[in-house]
Amino acid sequence: MIKRINAPITEETIQTLKAGDTVLLSGVVYTARDAAHKRMCQALESGQKLPFSLEGAVIYYVGPTPAKPGQVIGSAGPTTSGRMDAYAPKLIERGLKGMIGKGQRAKEVIDAMVAHGAVYFAATGGAGALLASRITRCELVAWEDLGTEAVRKLEVVDFPLTVVIDREGTNLYDMAARDYQE
């Protein structure tokens, strides 16, 4: 069964998501990779306001390619999530509810997800053109000097994802490895 959910994500929605669920996400998603995460954490540490509210937010770990004429955005495939692991717990503590990327997450990130109610989604690597077709709007939000790693606000419709780690810490990658070994 495919679940349709909206972003920003509510606590009620978080409660319904389980590792292995297929979802179609619609709504607002922000882009940020490691350089932007570093700046967000520095801003928080110095008491500055972030360029967007973390409350219920979803961050997509992506550095999209430039849009061709007539396109909203270029290819928009996920990047490896582990590069954000040093920063993610601080953002989760402040209201971040969803992260989209690929690959495993550190124990500290999973612990923060469990403590504060967040989920980790995987987007299919190598499917950047398909994923870009689900983005209906792209707007620069902050740190243009970071180029493709700048923070952008995306509007997505039926963005295809899989819940990899749910708010209880159940990890689809670990489940699949155990199933394979049996």
Results as ranks from 00 to 15, higher is better:
residue 127 A to I: 07
residue 50 L to Q: 12
residue 160 P to I: 09
residue 64 P to A: 04
residue 73 I to D: 00
residue 116 H to Y: 14
residue 1 M to R: 10
residue 11 E to F: 07
residue 104 Q to T: 15
residue 155 E to T: 13
residue 32 A to K: 06
residue 37 H to S: 04
residue 45 E to N: 14
residue 69 P to Y: 09
residue 173 Y to C: 05
residue 166 D to P: 02
residue 179 D to A: 15
residue 152 R to V: 04
residue 182 E to T: 13
residue 9 I to W: 00
residue 89 P to K: 05
residue 61 Y to I: 12
residue 90 K to G: 00
residue 131 L to Q: 11
residue 167 R to A: 15
residue 107 K to S: 13
residue 42 Q to R: 13
residue 13 T to F: 10
residue 104 Q to A: 15
residue 35 A to I: 02
residue 68 K to V: 08
residue 22 T to F: 13
residue 102 K to D: 08
residue 85 D to W: 06
residue 163 V to A: 01
residue 4 R to H: 15
residue 173 Y to E: 08
residue 144 E to F: 06
residue 3 K to N: 10
residue 46 S to A: 14
residue 104 Q to E: 15
residue 151 V to N: 00
residue 27 G to H: 00
residue 83 R to E: 10
residue 38 K to T: 12
residue 31 T to Q: 05
residue 37 H to Y: 02
residue 149 E to M: 07
residue 90 K to D: 13
residue 71 Q to Y: 09
residue 93 E to R: 11
residue 61 Y to W: 01
residue 59 I to K: 04
residue 99 M to R: 02
residue 133 S to I: 03
residue 181 Q to H: 14
residue 57 A to R: 01
residue 155 E to A: 07
residue 144 E to M: 09
residue 9 I to G: 08
residue 45 E to C: 05
residue 31 T to H: 04
residue 144 E to L: 02
residue 42 Q to F: 06
residue 48 Q to I: 02
residue 133 S to N: 08
residue 51 P to G: 07
residue 35 A to M: 02
residue 19 A to W: 03
residue 60 Y to T: 08
residue 134 R to T: 09
residue 159 F to N: 03
residue 64 P to V: 06
residue 29 V to E: 12
residue 84 M to D: 05
residue 17 L to T: 05
residue 53 S to A: 01
residue 37 H to G: 03
residue 67 A to K: 10
residue 72 V to W: 03
residue 26 S to D: 06
residue 3 K to A: 03
residue 84 M to Q: 00
residue 106 A to I: 00
residue 37 H to Q: 07
residue 170 T to N: 12
residue 68 K to I: 00
residue 35 A to T: 14
residue 84 M to L: 13
residue 54 L to R: 05
residue 64 P to R: 08
residue 56 G to R: 09
residue 34 D to W: 03
residue 47 G to N: 07
residue 143 W to L: 09
residue 158 D to M: 05
residue 172 L to C: 07
residue 128 G to I: 09
residue 87 Y to T: 01
residue 182 E to F: 12
residue 6 N to Y: 14
residue 106 A to Y: 10
residue 19 A to Q: 01
residue 81 S to P: 05
residue 143 W to T: 08
residue 73 I to Q: 06
residue 162 T to Q: 13
residue 169 G to P: 03
residue 62 V to N: 12
residue 141 V to E: 08
residue 137 R to N: 13
residue 149 E to I: 07
residue 176 A to H: 10
residue 119 V to A: 04
residue 177 A to M: 14
residue 145 D to N: 12
residue 22 T to L: 15
residue 12 E to R: 15
residue 147 G to P: 10
residue 129 A to F: 14
residue 84 M to Y: 07
residue 99 M to L: 14
residue 15 Q to T: 10
residue 169 G to A: 02
residue 110 I to V: 15
residue 149 E to R: 06
residue 73 I to R: 02
residue 79 T to S: 14
residue 75 S to G: 06
residue 28 V to I: 15
residue 2 I to E: 13
residue 106 A to S: 14
residue 60 Y to I: 06
residue 11 E to N: 13
residue 28 V to N: 09
residue 111 D to H: 04
residue 146 L to G: 08
residue 127 A to Y: 08
residue 88 A to K: 10
residue 12 E to G: 08
residue 72 V to P: 02
residue 41 C to M: 13
residue 128 G to A: 11
residue 172 L to N: 03
residue 21 D to V: 06
residue 91 L to W: 04
residue 53 S to D: 15
residue 13 T to M: 12
residue 60 Y to W: 01
residue 69 P to A: 11
residue 17 L to D: 04
